[in-house]
Design a protein around this nucleic acid. Sequence first.
DNA 1: TCAACATAGATGCAGATGCATATATCTGTC
DNA 2: GACAGATATATGCATCTGCATCTATGTTGA
Lengths: 153, 153
Amino acid sequence: MSDSTLNPAIETAWVYLVRAGEAVVSAVEDDVKAGGAPPLAWYDVVLELSRAGREAGLRQNELERRLLFKQYNLSRLLDRLEEAKYVERKPCPEDGRGYVVTVTAAGRQFQKRVWPIYRAAIARRFEGRLTNKEAAELGRLLKKLTATESGAE
Amino acid sequence: MSDSTLNPAIETAWVYLVRAGEAVVSAVEDDVKAGGAPPLAWYDVVLELSRAGREAGLRQNELERRLLFKQYNLSRLLDRLEEAKYVERKPCPEDGRGYVVTVTAAGRQFQKRVWPIYRAAIARRFEGRLTNKEAAELGRLLKKLTATESGAE
DNA sequence: TCAACATAGATGCAGATGCATATATCTGTC
DNA sequence: GACAGATATATGCATCTGCATCTATGTTGA
């Protein structure tokens, strides 16, 4: 581990994580744009807010945490979404520093409208490359890799 | 497949691919920056050029293909690397449109200098989260996912 | 109740990316 | 050997990202 070589299994996983991550996301984004829809991140935010409930919404910091966005990126993404009228920011009654973000009716419409485009783009990328079983395993492994520090270090 | 729902295994894999991809790369990049080294992409290019041989080098389009970079991104990345004196672009004798890119001595030094930083950052992210066996399986699956269209579609 | 520090979020500026298109060269065809 | 694509690379412009820092509010403890 403080050897000058990286475990080959880790190295391969790393290389393909970077490339698959970028290439696959980029391919899906291209499909999505060809379908005239905004970037995937828009969908992620609106979906997460819909799940949280139209009334309840979420605090920005909670959205950040759930979607693993950086603070300043989310801040600006919300500016754009707000400008598009897909979300609203309301001052948080319990914490004067914060905002509660909720999805608007237009946001929900947007979500429903673009989902077929996203779904097709994603499916197109996985089908023919991985079996369902493999996809499940991939998901499991990536989830472990994403997990925050817990027992180990 | 033209159903309105995405296969759950694919959906999970997709979600974690996007998040793990971004979060893991971003965590490693942070470590790398904390160590005072330039972005990972610099290393990738220099390494690939070193492997190709100091004399031989590679055409830009070949680098593009191997590293899955977009044409304009590579073009500009090479501008920066050239400015840093880590690589050189020489007109290609066989094709007047193209360039052959080679790594310089300084580029090799750079490569050797930052590798320990990169290696440690990557290892730190995998160790304690995935076993070697799991890392190997992850690599295998990602590789399949990255593969270009072949039999299926 | 005030100082000291922590947290939520926004923002100016520099650098990177995406998109569309430009320029130069190459290849084939008539 | 000229014209119609195709290919290799670069680039202007707008958007997005990263970094550092700012403002405002919250929390704690003497």
